[in-house]
Write a protein that binds this DNA or RNA. Structure first.
Lengths: 128, 128
DNA sequence: ATCATTGTATTAAGCTCTTAGTACAACAGT
DNA sequence: ACTGTTGTACTAAGAGCTTAATACAATGAT
């Protein structure tokens, strides 16, 4: 999955989310070394300062730690990562429920919409 | 539902979404007169210019129309409103599916998470 | 006719975000 | 010892968002 950045929100914030995603999905495994700030920035077509800001945030959250001159590493505590994954999922679900109910749908109807959309995506993939 | 504004995204954009919500849920019925720009701005604790920008966007989308000096009115075409509701719901579902799958969950697991969270919310409401 | 209210427009200031460019100390590899 | 890479820090500029403060023409109510 490449970097997907929108101008509608702070880029550094989107970078935080997408690096989190790469960590919880194992693309950046626990304890592994991250690409350098400059490398990540170039890959995302973003200024190094912006990437640095995102990484500082991740470091403040305890998800990565920097070794000053040898690079930056993902935390070795796999439990922290699993917990993050659960939190992200729970927030996603909670936000979705809040929004869909604000629109006037019940949770049951939301589940039906979800099934319908999933089936539609499945068909699209099959056709491809 | 009061105005819920975050500093993380452009306020005018959030105002657009929340006014859309008030329209599709019938709080601002089709054909009805909206509060004045200044009134809405004061209610949302926002600068009139910011509210004006949101309303201009809604007008460009054909959801409201202004009568220059007598006020602004919700479109009378209820079909437009119903269509917006469906579109908003579909986008919500699609985005949720995309994000939850990016986290590593299948659509089925997502549905289970949804049920679990809904049950949790139900319990919370019962306790209150 | 008068006056308040309507949408709309304009200018200025302050803020955050982003980019660009530069710089420095600490370490690894040679 | 030297060189390149590392994270980190700083300044400057430009863009967008928000607020503040006005201003104006058109209309409705009185």
């Amino acid at each position: 999955m490449a970097w997907e950045l929108s101008a509608q929100r702070p880029i550094w914030s989107q970078l935080v989310e997408q690096i989190q995603l790469r960590i919880v999905t194992g693309r950046y495994p626990a304890g592994s070394r991250l690409p350098s700030v400059r490398e990540l920035a170039a890959d995302a077509s973003v200024n190094p300062n912006t990437m640095q800001r995102a990484l500082s945030q991740l470091e403040a959250d305890g998800l990565v730690c920097s070794q000053r001159t040898s690079g930056r590493f993902v935390t070795e505590q796999e439990e922290t990562i699993m917990e993050l994954k659960k939190t992200l999922a729970k927030n996603l679900v909670r936000d979705f429920l809040t929004r869909i109910e604000a629109l006037g749908y019940t949770a049951k109807e939301a589940a039906q919409l979800l099934e319908a959309e999933d089936a539609a995506q499945f068909r699209t993939k099959e056709d491809a």
